[in-house]
């Protein structure tokens, strides 16, 4: 009885597997970008799977070996962290080194004359402690359930701390921007007044000499 319930549970679980993640459609030559704003030293895992539209059956082919995906990850300084062609299904992971907006772009490597056909992209992006596979951790480190729980809580707290540090950093940057804007506006208005006065004085002087030259005054 217990085994049966286990089996059914197992079946339900596998049914919900990875193939059922969120998906969207793109044209074959289209480029799709996602932005992840993350603190530094954070793990990101991107799982994806591409299916090519099959005009004969009107559906999507579950596997399309000919199609590869070009994945490009850029850090906040616009430097390329990762740029490679992967197969139609894959798992990419990277760790951020600078905090900020990371841009993850995907496009297929298909040749242009093929365009018009559609691609279905299943995508799953996990950040921080969500990216940790605890199944592996348990097996590797032989943790008890309680130890695992505490481990997970620790990871979560660590992620929160990172996030908080990042927000502090962002706040600092924001404040610096505001303060510099403030002082620049001040100097700007002073300069503007000076320009206005100088222009007025020049106008008067110029006109005065002009009138005198023309013997109007």
């Amino acid at each position: 009885m217990r085994n049966l319930s286990l089996l059914s549970l197992f079946l339900v679980c596998t049914l919900f597997g990875y193939g059922h993640s969120l998906y969207f459609h793109i044209g074959e030559t289209e480029r799709k970008c996602f932005i992840e704003e993350i603190p530094d030293e954070t793990n990101v895992i991107v799982n994806y799977k591409v299916e090519l539209y099959d005009p004969r059956s009107g559906g999507f082919m579950p596997s399309s070996p000919g199609i590869g995906m070009h994945v490009e990850v850029r850090d906040p300084d616009d430097k390329v962290l990762l740029s490679r062609v992967y197969s139609s299904e894959g798992k990419i992971s990277f760790t951020s080194h600078t905090p900020g907006e990371h841009v993850i772009c995907m496009y297929s490597n298909s040749s242009a004359w093929f365009s018009g056909s559609q691609l279905r992209v299943h995508l799953d992006i996990q950040v921080g402690e969500h990216a940790v596979n605890y199944g592996e951790v348990v097996q590797k480190e032989k943790l008890s359930e309680l130890q695992l729980r505490v481990r997970q809580l620790l990871d979560q707290v660590e992620q929160i701390t990172k996030e908080q540090n990042y927000q502090r950093y962002r706040e600092e940057r924001f404040r610096q921007t505001s303060e510099s804007t403030n002082s620049r506006v001040l100097w700007w208005s002073v300069t503007q007044t000076a320009v206005l006065l100088a222009m007025g004085a020049w106008q008067m002087k110029h006109l005065k000499s002009f009138f005198e030259a023309k013997k109007l005054v």
Partner: peptide, 27 residues
């Protein structure tokens, strides 16, 4: 460990150009 996938959350930040429409599907 498998049932990890039963609840599923996606957080995405994406660009939406002018006069564009972006759809996401989920079973």
């Amino acid at each position: 460990v498998l049932s990890l996938y039963t609840s599923y959350a996606t957080e995405l930040t994406f660009e939406l150009p002018d006069s564009a429409k972006e759809c996401f599907h989920q079973e």
